[in-house]
């Protein structure tokens, strides 16, 4: 009887220790970014900048200008296009990284295939009191679209700086597995703020 009780105690202790081991924050967590959470339409106020997600669109293809020539960019998954409005808080700053975190915590960084566009895309320079629109573009697997979170921070590995975490909410899937409302081609040749270049 006593032996059985000891065994039960041992198992409880092992379970407890496993829990402690798993849930103990480590260096990467301690110096990780500090989340500021919000949803689409909210003004999410971080330390150095504030951001509001206006809309989220999905597309199979993108059309963009590259050195005066129009290119169509395809993808193995789906393009997710997030239109945002930034403003700096206390000082002019640069917002340079964004990623798309799917429901299973797969993290899709902002695409590097549009780095030839230098206006309205990351990195974005923002000044206090001046709103600035920009487009964030991600390539994601279609099933990582719903209940995703868009993470925006001023720089990569911004230790203990704020990171905007904006939840996208559920996205219905159409019969072919693509998110509902996916358009064939989205046009990026027009500037996001409507101002001529």
């Amino acid at each position: 009887m006593r032996r059985l009780a000891n065994l039960v105690l041992l198992l409880v202790a092992v379970a407890l220790c496993y829990g402690l081991q798993m849930s103990k924050p480590h260096y990467a967590d301690l110096i990780g970014p500090i989340p500021v959470r919000g949803k689409v339409g909210d003004v999410v106020v971080g330390r150095s900048f504030e951001v509001r997600v206006e809309k989220v669109q999905f597309a199979r293809k993108l059309r963009a200008d590259r050195y005066g020539e129009t290119k169509v960019l395809t993808t193995g998954g789906v393009w997710a296009l997030v239109t945002v409005e930034f403003a700096a808080r206390d000082a002019s700053t640069v917002v340079s990284t964004a990623s798309w975190r799917g429901p299973t915590r797969l993290t899709y960084d902002h695409t590097e295939r549009l780095s030839f566009i230098n206006n309205g895309f990351l990195p974005v320079t923002v000044d206090p009191g001046l709103q600035k629109k920009a487009r964030l573009v991600f390539e994601v697997r279609p099933e990582e679209v719903g209940n995703a979170t868009v993470l925006i921070s001023s720089k990569l590995l911004a230790a203990l700086d704020s990171q905007a975490e904006i939840s996208i909410g559920p996205v219905a899937a159409s019969s072919d597995g693509m998110p509902a409302g996916t358009v064939d081609t989205l046009d990026l040749t027009q500037p996001v703020d409507g101002l001529p270049k």
């Binding site: 808080r89 206390d90 000082a91 002019s92 320079t125 000044d127 206090p128 009191g129």
Partner: peptide
């Protein structure tokens, strides 16, 4: 070089 307003907000030179 920067501009500082009464509230202490700072602007850096622009390229726009």
């Amino acid at each position: 070089v920067m501009l500082i307003d009464a509230e202490g907000r700072r602007w850096l030179p622009t390229s726009a």
